[in-house]
Write a protein that binds this DNA or RNA. Structure first.
Length: 264
DNA sequence: ATGTCAGCGACACGCTGA
């Protein structure tokens, strides 16, 4: 079974690229992030023509996650256990955002997640990010006993080590690399998950994200922030994993490339 | 050679978030 994750930066703006990639890469299950569309506006018919059912958690404009599957969809769970909302300047948004969806596909439990960006260390959004990662950990702890093969895939907005960014000296005072963010990932792994490290098809580090600005992609100024965190049973079944950096090239790409994981 | 993009409100482009 082939399982992939891709932050598409608007499924509406990216639809031709997404459909083309689904047709060629032919994953059985795909986790998408940053849909920027509602469940009703999601292109269910278009992905359906390629054989996918879709479970969607989105509301429009920002965020939004989905799981597409050719091998069935069961037990859909929208949002995390006790998921925090974003509190800006003392004002708590009325409900959690659309950043996590859990689905069982062909016997594999899959979560598609879009971790909050954090904006800058010390910002209320940064505190929210750390709290959100803790709710993700609690959700994994809640689900792991009932599921052998389980994986959390998505845009984690954290680079696990200094080697996962193009130049650590460019990230002073930045989110994505701070010790508390990395500690939150370490606690997630301690709950029983393994970082499935993809092959680099070019260069020496399998980056998954390159900023649109300043020629970051041609200069390979990237980051590895799209991750697959897998249970022991899932990780033990992995036969291959790679970043499809071809999907970052050409006209109207997302700023993220898909991560593809093959299970034997 | 290239030096950001998407959605929104409102109908032109500035604002927000990434």
């Amino acid at each position: 079974m082939r399982i992939a994750t891709w932050n598409v930066n608007s499924v509406t703006a990216r639809l031709p690229r997404v459909l083309g990639w689904l047709a060629t890469a032919a994953p059985d299950v795909v986790c998408l992030q940053e849909l920027k569309c509602s469940d009703e506006a999601f292109p269910h018919d278009e992905v359906g023509e390629l054989g996918y059912e879709a479970a969607v958690h989105g509301v429009g404009r920002w965020n939004g996650v989905a799981v597409l599957s050719k091998v069935g969809i069961r037990d859909v769970r929208r949002g995390l256990l006790d998921e925090p909302g974003y509190e800006a300047e003392g004002v708590l948004l009325p409900a959690p955002e659309q950043r996590a969806i859990g689905v069982t596909c062909g016997g594999v439990r899959v979560w598609s997640v879009y971790v909050p960006n954090g904006r800058e260390p010390g910002h209320t959004h940064y505190t929210y990010k750390l709290g959100w990662l803790e709710a993700l950990r609690a959700t994994v702890v809640d689900e792991l006993p009932a599921h052998g093969q389980l994986a959390v895939l998505g845009d984690f907005n954290v680079a696990p080590t200094d080697d996962d960014v193009w130049d650590i000296s460019a990230f002073e005072q930045s989110t994505h690399v701070t010790p508390p963010e990395r500690q939150a990932l370490a606690e997630l792994r301690s709950a029983g998950l393994t970082d499935v490290y993809p092959r680099a098809l070019k260069h020496d580090v399998p980056f998954t994200y390159w900023d649109y600005r300043q020629l970051a992609f041609p200069k390979n100024r990237g980051m590895r922030i799209d991750l697959a965190y897998a249970s022991a049973t899932f990780a033990g079944a992995v036969t291959d994993a790679y970043v499809d950096r071809e999907a970052r090239k050409g006209k109207d790409p997302s700023d993220h490339a898909p991560v593809v994981v093959d299970l034997g």
